[in-house]
Design a protein around this nucleic acid. Structure first.
Lengths: 192, 192
DNA sequence: CGCGACGTTGATTTGCCTCAACGATTGTGG
DNA sequence: CCACAATCGTTGAGGCAAATCAACGTCGCG
C-alpha cells in the first residue's frame, strides 16, 4: 500500500513504531474517486475522514439559493472531511467532491476512536493538525472581514501557488467569496 | 483556588484523578485584569493560554489602517489566546483585551508541553476543544462569504444571546464585519 | 459533431462604506 | 461630586465595490 505520504505526515509530529504503523494501516481503506464524483454529500453521513494520496478534492456548502461556497480544497498529503458531521456523527452539511481523479485513504470514526485508545500519540497528531488548521481558518476570517477581494486573491495566490492551475477559476472565486463575473474582471486588472 | 469551572470543562471530555488535578493546578497562575487592560498585545509574545474564570475578553486584530477586527470573544469557561503565536512561540499579531474586570487562569506554553507528557489525556482534551473551535470558525467563514450582514447578525444573536448585553455594539459590528454606522441602521430595521 | 459548462464583457443595481455632524453616556481628574 | 472630555450610538448625504442579469464565444466531453 502506498501510504508513504501518510507516514511522512505523522512523522512531522510524532514517532510511531512499526507495529503501530501496521495497526493503523489495517484500519485504512484505499478508495478511488473519479473526477466529479462525491466522497461525502450533504444530507448523508460523514463516517470517514480522508487522507489524499493523489488528485484533489473540494469541500463546499450549497446554500438555500443553490449557490455553492467553497470551504476548503485538499491536495496530496492533506486531510479532508465534514469535521462537524464526523465528530458529532450527524448528517453532513457539506459536499466533498473530486476535482480530479483522486485516491484517498479512508479512516472511519469508529476505527479512529479505538486507535486513539491504542496509540495515544494519535491524539497528539490530530491535536496539532487541527490547531494548525484552526489558525489557517482564523487568518481566512480576518482576511474576509478586513480585506478587499483583490487582496484576498493575492493571499490565495501566495498560499496555493503550486496548485492554482489545477483549480477551475470559478471555484477560486467561490473560495475567496466573489462571483465568477467579478473575479474575471478583477483578474484582468491584475494582469499588468 | 476557584477552578471549579475548569474541572467542569475538563470533565466534559476526560477523567482526571485527584493527583492529576493537583499537578495541573500547580502549573496555573490566577490573574486579574482590569477592564480595558491587555492580556496580550500585538508585537508582544503570547507565552500563555488563558482560561476565563469571570468577566470577559476580546481578541482582535488591528490592520494597517488602524482598524480593529474582532476574531473572538471569551466569557466564563472559555479558553483564549493568540493560538498562532502560542503554538509557534512567535510574536503575537492579535490583541487580547479585557471587556470587563476579568479573572483568568494562565497556563504557559512550557508548562503545558510538560503536562502533555505527564497527562496524555490532556492531548485529548485540547484536541476536542480545538476541533470544536475549528467547526465554529468554519461556520463563521461560510456565513461571512455567503450571507448578508443582517443574517450574520441574526446568527450572532442566536449564539451569543446570554452575553450580548455585555458587549458594546461597535464590537458586535466589528465581529460580524460591518461598520458601526451600518450596524446601527441595520438594527433599526430589525426592530419591527 | 453538438451540447453544456466555463470564462468574458456590458449595463444596471444595491449593500455597505465614508465622511461629517450631533446628542447621549461614560468616565475621570480636580 | 461636579464639569469637562472622550467615547458611543444615531442620522444624513454621497460614493464605490461587488452583485445581478443578460448575451456571447470557446472549449472539453459524450
Amino acid at each position: 500500500m502506498m501510504s508513504r505520504l501518510l507516514w511522512e505526515s505523522f512523522e512531522k509530529y510524532i514517532a510511531l513504531t512499526q507495529e503501530e504503523k501496521e495497526l493503523i494501516e489495517s484500519r485504512l481503506t484505499e478508495r478511488t474517486v473519479k473526477k466529479g464524483r462525491f466522497l461525502v454529500f450533504s444530507g448523508g453521513k460523514s463516517r470517514n475522514t480522508n487522507f489524499v494520496l493523489s488528485g484533489s478534492l473540494v469541500g463546499y456548502y450549497t446554500d438555500a439559493k443553490g449557490l455553492d461556497h467553497i470551504i476548503q480544497f485538499a491536495f496530496e498529503g492533506w486531510w479532508i472531511s465534514d469535521l462537524k458531521s464526523f465528530i458529532t456523527q450527524q448528517e453532513a452539511i457539506f459536499n466533498v467532491q473530486a476535482l480530479e481523479d483522486t485516491k484517498v485513504l479512508e479512516l472511519s470514526y469508529e476505527h479512529l476512536e479505538v486507535l486513539y485508545g491504542q496509540i495515544p500519540q494519535l491524539e497528539r497528531y490530530f491535536r496539532i493538525i487541527t490547531q494548525r488548521a484552526f489558525v489557517a481558518f482564523q487568518e481566512r476570517i480576518l482576511e474576509t472581514i478586513s480585506q478587499t477581494a483583490e487582496n484576498r486573491y493575492r493571499s490565495f495566490h501566495e498560499k496555493f501557488k503550486k496548485y492554482e492551475t489545477r483549480i477551475p477559476q470559478k471555484l477560486i472565486a467561490s473560495y475567496i467569496g466573489v462571483t465568477p463575473e467579478f473575479f474575471s474582471r478583477m483578474k484582468k486588472n491584475l494582469d499588468k
